[in-house]
Design a protein around this nucleic acid. Sequence first.
DNA 1: CGGTGACCAGATACGCAATATGGTCACCGG
DNA 2: CCGGTGACCATATTGCGTATCTGGTCACCG
Lengths: 241, 241
Amino acid sequence: MPGTRHEQRAQRILDAAAGLVLRWGYKRVTIEEVAKHAGIGKGTVYLHFDTRAWLFMCVLMRESLELVDELVAAIRRDPAALLPSEQARLTYLGVARRPLLRAMFGRDVDLLGELAHETAVEPLRALKIDFADELFELLREHGLMRTDLDIDTQRYILSAVQTGFYLSEPIAAVTAPPEFAAAALSHTICHALQTPGSPDPDALAALAPKVIAMYEQFRGTLAVASRGKAPEGEMSRPCPT
Amino acid sequence: MPGTRHEQRAQRILDAAAGLVLRWGYKRVTIEEVAKHAGIGKGTVYLHFDTRAWLFMCVLMRESLELVDELVAAIRRDPAALLPSEQARLTYLGVARRPLLRAMFGRDVDLLGELAHETAVEPLRALKIDFADELFELLREHGLMRTDLDIDTQRYILSAVQTGFYLSEPIAAVTAPPEFAAAALSHTICHALQTPGSPDPDALAALAPKVIAMYEQFRGTLAVASRGKAPEGEMSRPCPT
DNA sequence: CGGTGACCAGATACGCAATATGGTCACCGG
DNA sequence: CCGGTGACCATATTGCGTATCTGGTCACCG
């Protein structure tokens, strides 16, 4: 499986698609235009991506993978970055820096159209939930997270709180600087989910490799998904019914 | 100012409007239909409410006032209810019990149409912010809230966290029981904004009357606003331009 | 045999007439 | 005299028939 010529072309297609969406918004971008900007024929696009919707999902997934890589790098640099509060902060800042992810997390219907509607991100979320479960388990065992709440509740809190911070900018016209919002988010997660006091450096150092391994696996699952074809039920070809 | 015949009719109009919105959604409900259901003529509706949009705003305000009354009653019953975490929980449960408020907090565009779009609730929010500022100041002075964050940040956190909990149900199809979500919200606010440990009962008891007074004033401002005519710029009559 | 663009069916956008509705005000009945 | 009304008007909305566009396919080509 040479990740060479074929793979490079896929990247060019994704580049073209990403740029066009940013300029015109999802619903105005046609496959033909994407092909033209990638310097190839329309049919060739379908050699890589089943479906229009799936192509743009892959654009989003690629950006998400970049972000995951950033998170892993941060943990490598400083194990304290594996704490949920830090992860939340870094994620927020990483999203703020990437217009497409910002649109995705901010449910920007103007830019992403129906892609912003939850069904699209559904498979991705399922992955993320499994991941969070495993991670929380690990952190609790090492005394880094509270145990006065069960894991389901903690996952619910993390999800709801993040939702709130990502949506409160687009909703309230008030535009706070990203660093401000990220710090507030981090503070909230820290006190709501983690054990009080400074975390034990040894525990962090011991945990870092495991957490990184989990992230890499998560990354891998995502990468495979984005290489493969669209999952059956949703955004595959118009099925005969 | 006799709150009698005239006021009663206003209530009947609001009743009719509320019922119709719940059944058909904001955009399908006509003033004529509201009048018919209230057993009066169309013109009479305009004796009470400037504008279609303003009428339905008043419907929302009336429900909000009910909720405020619930909160005050809760504080009277037990001063501990004045803590932000408890207020958040009671508010969440009160909203969950009222379909219209649920639609408002959940930005239900299907039911509320353009009313769900933030501009409508803008004046209400301004009030609430002033109120929160004053309240937080008071709670901090009495050692009930953290002081490791400035008030602006705390207000931002409260707002964002609540946004997240109200929106996460409609967004994720997962429907948690209201009590579960309310408890999670309460926990989050408690640890993010309040001082650790059990609050001092004496401080609570001493504060209760002041907080209640503030609520009553807030209530009053809201009530006056809903009696008065629509504020100029936004949802007043089609101005000559 | 990887790549292409003409081709087709179904979706979408457009234009326009018919209808419905918000808001007003001259008029009525008590 | 005045609180209440519903016919009335200008405008917004809807419905619909048509024209255009676009996602996805596939026979053909270099």
